[in-house]
Amino acid sequence: MSKKLEFQEIYHSHYPKVIRLCMGYLSGNEALAKDMAQEVFIKVWQYLKDFRGEATISTWIFRITVNTCLQELRKKKTKSLKIDIASNEANEDPESEKQFASMYRCINKLSAENKSIILLELEGLPQKEIAAITGLNHAAIRTRIHRIKDQLSKCVKNE
């Protein structure tokens, strides 16, 4: 398979997950999330030849995504990112919009590492894969996810 065809297949199968993860990191800012997703796939294209297969391609791409988004957040540390609810579909239930916004506000209060963990969990990644991406062991991930969910529940209730 040519590099171009291989990349196109990778792009199409991973873009939806990458954009959702970026949206989570960037407080639902769709334009910035699309920019970050583009950055991720530029890096994937550039380094695909160097991919050694020590992890799955998905794990490798998620690690690039996490690192790219964290790098962007460090650059923008002085600016506060706001949730762009207007970009959501107009026919959404106003109550679910409030819950969505509240959840993202609470997620944004988490440490960078906990934010990574919960966004990957919300993306539906297996906990072992989250451990591989974050560099933590599986038991630590299970414990953290439980604690993070408790913390988020309390935060959302207090909003």
Rank of each mutant, 00 (worst) to 15 (best):
I42C: 09
W45N: 12
R52D: 15
T65K: 05
T59H: 03
K49T: 15
T59I: 11
K34Q: 12
I57Q: 04
D35G: 04
S58C: 05
K49A: 14
T65Y: 09
K34N: 12
V44D: 01
L48C: 09
E54Q: 10
K43C: 07
V40D: 02
W45F: 13
F41L: 11
E54M: 05
S58T: 03
T59D: 07
Q46F: 09
R52K: 14
A37P: 00
F41V: 11
A37L: 06
K43V: 08
V44S: 08
W45Y: 13
E39C: 13
W60G: 02
F62W: 09
K43M: 06
Q46D: 15
W45M: 14
Q46C: 12
L32Y: 07
T65G: 06
G53V: 01
G53M: 04
A37W: 03
V44R: 05
F41G: 12
L48T: 09
I64M: 03
V44M: 02
V44W: 00
V44N: 02
L32D: 11
S58A: 11
A33K: 04
I42K: 10
T56C: 02
K34D: 10
Q38W: 10
E54I: 08
A55C: 13
F41H: 05
A55K: 12
Q46M: 14
Q46L: 15
W60Q: 02
F62H: 09
G53K: 09
D50V: 11
I61S: 01
Q38G: 13
L32I: 15
V40R: 01
V40W: 03
I61W: 01
K49E: 15
S58M: 05
A37E: 05
I57L: 11
R63K: 11
T56G: 02
A37I: 05
V44Y: 03
L48V: 07
Y47M: 11
D35F: 11
L32K: 14
L48W: 03
Q38R: 13
T59S: 06
V40A: 05
I64V: 08
W60L: 02
E54R: 09
K43D: 08
T59G: 04
E54Y: 07
V44L: 06
Y47D: 10
G53Q: 08
T59Q: 09
Q46K: 15
